[in-house]
């Protein structure tokens, strides 16, 4: 029985994701596009949460909904004539080709890779380790991959300093 609920929730989230993603590109009003993008992010966070990746789900909401979307809306607010500013251009054939290639590449990658499928009935000890994904993630980032983590930090710092150097008055 619980599997049925999970299926229903998954397909609902899937439908919301696809529909709102279509809304992002399919309407004229840029502000509404940005809002539809937020709905997409939220639905993807829901899918993450359903896959027991709570930390990833919350991080998705925190970073994409809370920060990136706000910046997107900020940028959108500076555009001229916002409700009608999205016009079709003559670049449509090019973009169709590019998007099609990306789609083919991604599906190829997904179908080619070896997925470790989990048995439907998990042993108890595996389930208990699955629940606390945040502490595992913390251990992995701070202990095993600390070099990469610190490098990303330095990179971001350089980006911030660079941005400040660009906008600062001489």
């Amino acid at each position: 029985m619980p599997n049925l609920y999970q299926e229903v929730i998954f397909w609902a989230l899937f439908a919301i994701t696809v529909f709102s993603a279509l809304l992002v590109v399919g309407q004229r009003d840029m502000f509404r596009s940005a809002l539809a993008l937020i709905v997409t992010f939220l639905a993807i966070a829901g899918i993450f949460a359903q896959m027991n990746a709570e930390f990833l789900a919350v991080a998705q909401v925190l970073i994409y909904v809370g920060a990136v979307s706000v910046l997107v809306i900020f940028a959108v607010m500076f555009t001229k004539d916002m409700p009608h500013s999205t016009r079709s251009t003559n670049l449509q054939p090019v973009s169709i080709v590019v998007v099609g290639l990306l789609f083919i590449a991604l599906s190829w990658a997904i179908f080619q890779s070896q997925w470790n499928e989990m048995p439907a009935e998990l042993p108890v000890f595996v389930e208990s380790t699955l629940v606390d994904s945040s502490s595992q993630l913390g251990t992995a980032i701070i202990r095993d991959y600390v070099m990469a983590f610190e490098t990303v930090g330095v990179l971001l710092l350089a980006a911030v300093v660079g941005a400040l150097a660009l906008v600062r008055d001489k």
């Binding site: 925190l62 909904v65 809370g66």
Partner: peptide, 15 residues
């Protein structure tokens, strides 16, 4: 991840 959840959810308010 309760604390992180609180911050994430309150971000919706600013939207």
């Amino acid at each position: 991840i309760g604390l992180l959840y609180l911050v994430a959810v309150s971000g919706l308010g600013s939207i």
